[in-house]
């Protein structure tokens, strides 16, 4: 039996707390085990979701203790998969993320950008690694896009041909 072309969507809200990120990532990994036999692919999807959610926690604009994010994963088996995270941002936080993604998209080599960032960490250690989005692009092989509309940042990572 071939599952190629079978469409899937996983869509749910996440309370924007750091402690929830690992739980969501683990749950997602279990959930998509029902779709994909390939363990490496399951790990890529879960890693991408985890890094995007971590990014959201770091850059979200919080108006109260109940700030919600939205995680959505969709695609078709045998085709591209998308991982999307939306969260409220202020202007500065949104611009920081948009600039980072534009930098990745315009780089001549994602690998070189990733290695360059690692060299910077080695010479100037910092509490913020700024490796997450680069890791998604390099390790996950993803194309990243981002928009800010009405104070909500939405990042989409496309995993082309991975499924």
């Amino acid at each position: 039996m071939s599952a190629v072309g079978f469409n899937f969507t996983i869509d749910f809200p996440v309370l924007g707390e750091w402690e929830n990120v690992d739980q969501v990532r683990l749950s997602l990994q279990s959930c998509i085990a029902t779709l994909f036999q390939n363990v490496d692919l399951r790990h890529v999807l879960a890693m991408v979701a985890g890094e995007l959610l971590e990014n959201a926690v770091k850059y979200a604009h919080r108006t109260d203790d109940h700030t919600m994010f939205r995680l959505k994963i969709w695609g078709a088996l045998g085709d591209v998969a998308f991982v999307q995270v939306s969260n409220p941002v202020d202007e500065e936080g949104g611009q920081t993320v948009l600039d980072a993604i534009n930098g990745i998209r315009s780089a001549s080599s994602v690998a070189d950008s990733y290695f360059q960032r690692m060299r910077e960490i080695a010479t100037r250690p910092s509490r913020l690694s700024r490796l997450g989005l680069l890791r998604i692009a390099y390790e996950g092989g993803c194309e990243l896009t981002a928009t800010v509309e009405a104070g909500v940042l939405t990042i989409v990572a496309a995993i082309p041909g991975a499924l």
Partner: peptide, 16 residues
């Protein structure tokens, strides 16, 4: 089983 990108930065610290 897993490490996040911030852990990769910590490993670079270990190497340094």
């Amino acid at each position: 089983d897993y490490f996040n990108s911030s852990t990769i930065a910590a490993l670079i610290d270990a190497i340094r």
